[in-house]
């Protein structure tokens, strides 16, 4: 008996967003990275177009991260003290994008200055030709001050600047407008809030093809299915033709997976949990692959081995 595979006819399409500008486009990146463009749900190749694979970004920090798991620090080795070297190592580990995470303070004490932020951005831009994502420290005043400076320093590079939230997006968007960058818009796992923030940002005059949305993700075992469901609904709405949900999605899976007990703690846990490092890598890998299946276009990861495994997974899903 032949099984007829039902094919849905969608009217909508995810907007294509290109990160990074080459010399031709007024930047210095060796190539741009495009995401979006889907006309079907994840990996239903028989149903519609999936022009670009999900992209892996590797997260690096402007200084040796104080709160990262020793497993991660060990995996990267000495480069964590040098953002430029780290960016290169990340590129070698298979990153297609680099996320540079800015810190609030230096050595947990003096505040990171505008000059610091500009300098580290420049170092990373010089070290790698990959498109760059830059996140502020996550505190309103510092985010606005540092990201405006970074935007200016990297004018024309089509950075992805983050994180815009409903309470604080105007300054970051204005900086992106002034210097030809993109922004990422984060909302707390809610379809309507995501739509609303996209509307507010595009109302300021930033074209939709310069916005990536971050619907907020959670790690395996910590509400991942809730995030999954919201992303799935956002994508279905996008394919149904709801314009304000047609943006590519970004998820910070590395951050989420590595702050949970299962990946963080090596001692005093049940033996049945198995070997620590393998467990931690699995935690990040599974969180990543699951959210990729719900429609993530950019996954921001931390461990090189998890990156390798996610890459294998993506290649297979893309039919390579």
């Amino acid at each position: 008996m032949t099984v007829e595979i039902p094919v849905e006819k969608w009217s909508g399409k995810v907007i294509e967003v290109a990160l990074g500008a080459t010399a031709e486009e007024g930047g210095t990146r060796t190539h741009a990275v495009t995401v979006g463009g889907q006309t079907t749900l994840p990996f239903l190749h028989f149903e519609g177009a999936i022009p670009y694979p999900p992209r892996i970004a590797i997260e690096i920090s402007d200084q040796r991260p104080g709160d990262w798991s020793p497993l991660l620090l060990e995996a990267w080795g000495d480069v964590v003290k040098d953002p430029a070297a780290w960016a290169k190592a990340a590129e070698e580990a298979g990153a297609e994008l680099i996320l540079l995470q800015l810190s609030l303070t230096k050595d947990g004490d003096t505040p990171v200055t505008v000059a610091d932020a500009q300098a580290v951005t420049r170092q990373v831009l010089d070290a790698t030709g990959l498109p760059l994502i830059v996140f502020g420290p996550g505190q309103v005043d510092a985010d606005n001050e540092l990201l405006v400076a970074v935007a200016e320093e990297a004018s024309g590079e089509r950075l992805l600047l983050g994180i815009c939230e409903e309470k604080n997006y105007r300054t970051i968007v204005a900086a992106a407008l002034a210097h030809n960058h993109l922004v990422t818009a984060r909302t707390a796992m809610d379809v309507n809030l995501a739509k609303q923030l996209n509307i507010l940002i595009s109302d300021m005059g930033l074209p939709l093809n310069r916005i990536v949305m971050d619907p907020t993700s959670a790690a395996l075992g910590y509400g991942m299915e809730y995030g999954y469901s919201v992303m799935e609904r956002l994508r279905i709405a996008a394919l149904q033709g709801d314009k304000m949900t047609q943006l590519p999605m970004l998820v910070t899976v590395g951050y989420e997976a590595w702050r949970q007990k299962e990946s963080k703690v090596g001692v005093g846990v049940p033996e049945a949990w198995g070997e620590w490092e393998e467990r931690a890598i699995l935690w990040e890998t599974l969180t990543t692959t699951t959210l990729i299946e719900s429609g993530a276009d950019i996954v921001i990861m931390r461990h090189p081995e998890a990156v390798r495994r996610a890459r294998v997974f993506i290649d297979r899903l893309m039919g390579k």
Partner: peptide
């Protein structure tokens, strides 16, 4: 222009 523009656009 860019520096003031950002402040005018973000509402400060």
């Amino acid at each position: 222009l860019r520096s003031w523009g950002i402040q005018l656009v973000d509402g400060r």
